[in-house]
Design a protein around this nucleic acid. Structure first.
Length: 453
RNA sequence: GGCGCUAUCGUCUAGUGGCUAGGACGGCAGGUUCUCAUCCUGUUAACCCCGGUUCGAGUCCGGGUAGCGUCACCA
């Protein structure tokens, strides 16, 4: 029975890395019949984004990730929980007040002092900092890396626990909470690794049962370095709006840094919960190449029903298009859909007259004959259905000595204005007899004009 | 620069001392087909380097090299 947590800061929308940091602990907790906790770490008032909390919850829900317990650090701060923890550390001699001006790491460069000059000044107010002991070794076993990691405290700086505005930093808040909430396993980003010795000390001084700790790999940008807002598309909502299914994105992300022993690739969330094994965590950083995501998405789209796709494709379709029309079209383009947003591009000719592009007709004279022949034949068709149109047609074309491929290509271009379309007969059925005949007639006229000039 | 982590096909990965190093995506080729796509088949391509341990190393150890992370009163 495992208790895990996902602890995002409401500083923006949920990104790919967040999603992964949420789904692993979720799966682990559910796999063991334990509890998954959502904890909002909103202790940085500067970076707080209005609506950030709702956005995070909202997106998690889209992926089917639900939580058993929910906490907000600013509320716990108001209850005095972190101040109390800080006092405990001060009174036991493991923390001290500091009245130095806040440093800005970017400006300070790499010449930071590890030991704070205020540690022995006996101030009775100010920011609270951790008093790092000299010449000690702190260590833990990382369950992701499956490795013991240790530091000399001589390389650790006196980290701030409580800011002068009374808000705790991550170092105090998260550790206090993990203890209070009896978190059994901390799964967090690799970028937290360097500050782990601080956390180990805080845990030790606060007392209680220390959670196991594991550091997830960092997702790398294909452009090098870690995935970032600047150079990459990172927000889950962006992918969702772009027509990626939550199942596909989740499946893709799950496999970025985790793999089962049998190397299975397809997982719904509940299947992942069942298959989850902490031994499957990857140790080296994956690169965020999305080719496989496209494959997953196409795969999942092909799995779902036409009725469901009709619903999903709505945001990408004009309002006045009826469901019955959509239901006719979807079977024709389902296999061609990589993203839901491909729908309008693949189906434009169903809704509007294609523009005549003379360049598409490579042999205008021959095509004109083919189209005239097609027009004559289609006029004679009484049963405007797939079989009604198709029966005997191909044989007739062959008998007339024409190439079937050329014939249908000319027809395809005339009716759809493109060389790439669903099977033309099915398309014509959906379009309707009058529309099809009109389009062919117009194309014939346009072609004649072209030939004349 | 200090501290720390990592290292198998282009990408995601399986591998836990004895394998022709496997799968998936992508690429390429072929089949199916009125085009494209789907689907099917085949194919391509990897153990970072150097030492050591061992009868035997992708697997263990050491050293290089490379990549990554981090050095805030941000998380």
């Amino acid at each position: 029975m495992v208790r895990t947590r996902f602890a995002p800061s409401p500083t923006g929308f949920l990104h790919i890395g967040n999603l992964r940091s949420a789904v692993y602990p979720y799966a682990w907790a559910k796999n063991t019949g334990g509890k998954f906790i959502l904890r909002i770490e909103d202790t940085d008032r500067e970076r707080y984004v209005e609506g950030g909390i709702e956005a995070i919850k909202n997106t998690l829900e889209k992926f089917g990730i639900s939580w058993d317990e929910y906490y907000v650090q600013s509320e716990r701060k108001a209850a005095g929980i972190y101040a109390k923890a800080a006092e405990k550390l001060i009174s036991s001699g493991h923390a001290f007040y500091c009245q130095c001006a806040a440093k800005n790491a970017k400006e300070e460069g790499f010449s930071n002092q590890l030991r704070d000059p205020c540690r022995d000044r006996g101030y009775i107010s100010g920011a609270v900092k951790l008093k790092i002991p000299d010449n000690e070794t702190v260590s833990y076993h990382d369950f992701v890396l499956d490795k013991d990691v240790s530091w000399s405290t001589d390389t650790v700086y006196d980290a701030t626990l409580l800011k002068s505005d009374g808000f705790p930093t991550y170092h105090l808040a998260a550790m206090t909470d993990d203890l209070d909430m009896q978190i059994s396993h901390i799964i967090r980003g690799h970028d937290w690794m360097p500050s782990t010795p601080i956390h180990l000390l805080v845990f030790q001084y606060l007392g209680g049962v220390r959670p196991e700790i594991g550091h997830l790999t960092d997702i790398q940008s294909p452009k090098g370095g870690k995935l970032s807002k600047r150079k990459d598309s990172v927000f889950c909502e962006t992918f969702l709006n772009d027509g990626y299914l939550p199942d596909a994105l989740l499946n893709f992300v799950i496999l970025l840094g985790w793999a089962p022993k049998d190397n299975r690739e397809l997982f719904t969330l509940s299947e992942f919960v069942r298959a989850f094994d902490p031994k499957g965590f990857q140790k080296s950083n994956p690169v965020f190449h999305t080719e496989k995501l496209d494959w997953f998405n196409g795969h999942y789209i092909r799995q779902i029903s036409d009725t469901e796709i009709t619903r999903l494709v709505k945001p990408y379709v004009k309002n006045d298009v009826e469901d019955t029309k959509l239901m006719q079209i979807i079977p024709l383009i389902k296999d061609r859909l990589v993203k839901l947003s491909d729908f309008p591009r693949l189906t434009s000719f169903f809704f509007s007259l294609p523009v005549f592009d003379p360049a598409l007709f490579t042999a205008p004279d021959a095509d004109l004959l083919l189209l005239s022949s097609a027009y004559d034949y289609l006029t004679s068709v009484t049963d405007w259905s797939k079989t009604g149109i198709e029966t005997g047609w191909t044989d007739n074309i062959k008998a007339s000595g024409r190439k079937v491929g050329d014939f249908f290509m000319a027809l395809r271009i005339a009716v759809c204005g493109s060389r790439f379309t669903p099977p033309i007969t099915d398309t014509m059925v959906v379009l309707g007899r009058d529309e099809v005949l009109t389009r062919i007639r117009q194309t014939i006229d346009n072609l004649k004009l072209k030939i004349k000039n």
